[in-house]
Design a protein around this nucleic acid. Sequence first.
DNA 1: GCGGATCAC
DNA 2: TATGGTGATCCGC
Length: 605
Amino acid sequence: MVEASSDTAPAPSQSRSLLKRLAGPSSTKAGLTNDQSDINRIIAEASKGSKYYENEKKKDKELTERIKRLLQTQNAATKEADLVQVESTVSHLLIELESLRDTSQIIVHIDADAFFANCELLYNPDLKGKPFGVGKGVLTTASYEARKFGVRSGMAAFIAKKLCPELILLSIHPQRYSDMSKKVMAILARYDPDMLVASCDEAYLNITEYCERHNMTAEECVSEMRRIVQEETKLTVSAGIAPNRMLSKICSDKNKPNGQFHLPFNSQAIKDFMVDLPVRKVPGIGRVLERMLESIGVTTCGDIFTHRVSIALLDKEFGLRFMLQTYLGIASNVVRPHSREERKSIGAERTFHPLADKDKILQKLEEVAEELENDMTETGWAGRTVTLKYKLDDYQVFTRAKSFERWITNKTGKELLLPELPLKIRLIGLRVTKLKDLKLSTDSGIKRYFSGPTEQTSPRKKRKISSENHQDVDYNWEDCILLDGDEEDCETLEDELLSLTKLASPRASAALEGAVPPHECKPVSAKAAGKKRSIESQISCPLCGEELNTNDNQKVNAHIDFCLSREAIQEAEGQSPDAKAKSKSQANAWSWFLDPKTKPRSKGK
DNA sequence: GCGGATCAC
DNA sequence: TATGGTGATCCGC
C-alpha cells in the first residue's frame, strides 16, 4: 500500500515533495509554461544550504512522517471497521448533501488579473510586455511575462532573479492599489450592492436579481461588467459564473487572464466538472492536505468518491462532509458583505535582520506594539487576549498568549517574551483576540456611561472603513491607508470603564451549519434568504425514484438502505471487475453519481 | 484557554 | 544579498 512513488533515477523519495514545497504554495497557479521540474530544481539549487531551506526540509520530513502515521491509522481502521456499514453511512451522507444542492442563485467570482502588476503598468506603460515583479524582498505578484519563467507571488526576489535575470523589480505602492481597488469594486457593486469583497482584488456577487431585472443572461451580464471595468479602469478582470462560491472561484481561474467561464447550472454538469479537477484547486485544500490525500490515492475530486470509505475512516484528518461536498460541487452560495462584528482579531508583525541582543529585541517589540496600538485606536477595537509570536533565526515559529480580565488596547507582550529569552529572533508579532468593538460603546458624550450596547448611530464623523474592507491581502498597510487622518475623540478608554461595559452584541449565528473542512470553514449553501426559490421538503429516492419525506429521517434511511442492498445484490449477480479508478469503473449502486445515463431525476420544481 | 498548524490572499 | 504580513480556523491538550 505504501508505494514509495520514486519515479525517476536520482530522486530520493523525499526530495520530490521538498522540491515542490520549495517552489512555494502558489506553484499550482496560473501561467506556468516551462517545465515545472526544471524550475523547481533551480529554486532548490538557489535555496540550498540556507536556514530557510533547512527549515523547509524539516517541515517536509515531518509531513512525511505524519503521512506515515496516517496510513497506519488507515490500515488499522480498515481492519477493524465494518466497511459495508461505513459505505452505507457515506451513501446516506451523499444523498443528504445532494438534496441540499441549490442551483437557484447565480454566483460570480471576480478576480483581477495580476492586480498589483497591472496597476503598476498604468503608471509605467513602458513595462508592457516585459517580465517584472512587484515587491522588494518577497514578490507580491509577477507580470504574466515573468510568470513564464516560473516567477510567482510569494517568491523571494533573489530566487526570481535566478529564474529570470531580466526581471525588473518594482517597489510596492499600496495607495495605488487601494485606489484602483475602490474603483473596481464600485463598478461591481452596481451589479450586486450586497457583494462580498473578499480581498482587494477579488469579489463575489450574486447577480440573480440583476439578470432578472435587466432580462440578461449571466454571461451577458458578466461580459458587460468586465467590459465596463476595463473601460473605466484600464484593468482586466476574470470571472467565474456558477451556482456557488467555491465553483465560481474555481471557474474564474479557468480562462484567466481577461476571460470568463460559465459552468452549466445542473447537477450532472457540475459533477462532470469536478471529476477531473485536481483537489488542490479547491479552496481550503492546500499543500498539506493535498499530500495527505495523494497518499491515499486521491488527486482529483473524482477520486474522493473512489476512496470515500478511506476518507470516512479518516474523517478527523480529512473532514468527510467537506470532502463529499467537494466531490459533489456543493458549497455555500451566500453572498453578503463582511460585517464589522465578524472580526476576530487584530495584529501586527514585523520581520527584521535576526537579533540576539535583548534590548534590541525589546525595541522591536515596542515598535510592533505601538503599531498595533495605533491601529486599534484608529479602528476602534479592544480585546482580552494578547498573543505574542516570534520566529527564530532558523524559521521556527512560536506563540505565547495571555488573557486578561479587562479590555486592553495596548500591551507590549513583554512579560510573554522575557521568559523566552535569550533567543535569536527574526520576527516579532502581536495579536489581540476576544475583541470588543469600541465603536458600539464609545459614542460621544455621557451616552456611554448609561447606555448598554448602543446602536451604531453615532452622528459624529463617520470613518471611511467600509465594513467589508479590513481584509487586505498581500500588503498590510491598507488599514492605515483606508483610514487616513481623523483622530478626534479616540482617547484611550479607561480599563475600569471598559471592564464594566459588557459585550452584549448578539451573535447572530448564521443560518445553516455546514461541512467542516480541516481548516477553512464556512457555512454551507443556504437557499439565500430573501432571494427567491422555495425549499423542497420532498426528495425522491435516488435509487428507485420513490418520493420520500425528508422530515422523517428514520424512514428515509431505512428506505435507502433497502434500495442499496437491493442494488448491491443486483451488482453482485452480473459484475465484471474492471477497476479503472475512473468514472465508469464505479459499477456499483453509486454509478448514478457519475454516470449521466443512470442519473436519477430527483428534485421537483 | 493555550500552542501548533494550515490556509487564503 | 540570506524567503512577508493579516486574519481565520481547527485540533489536541
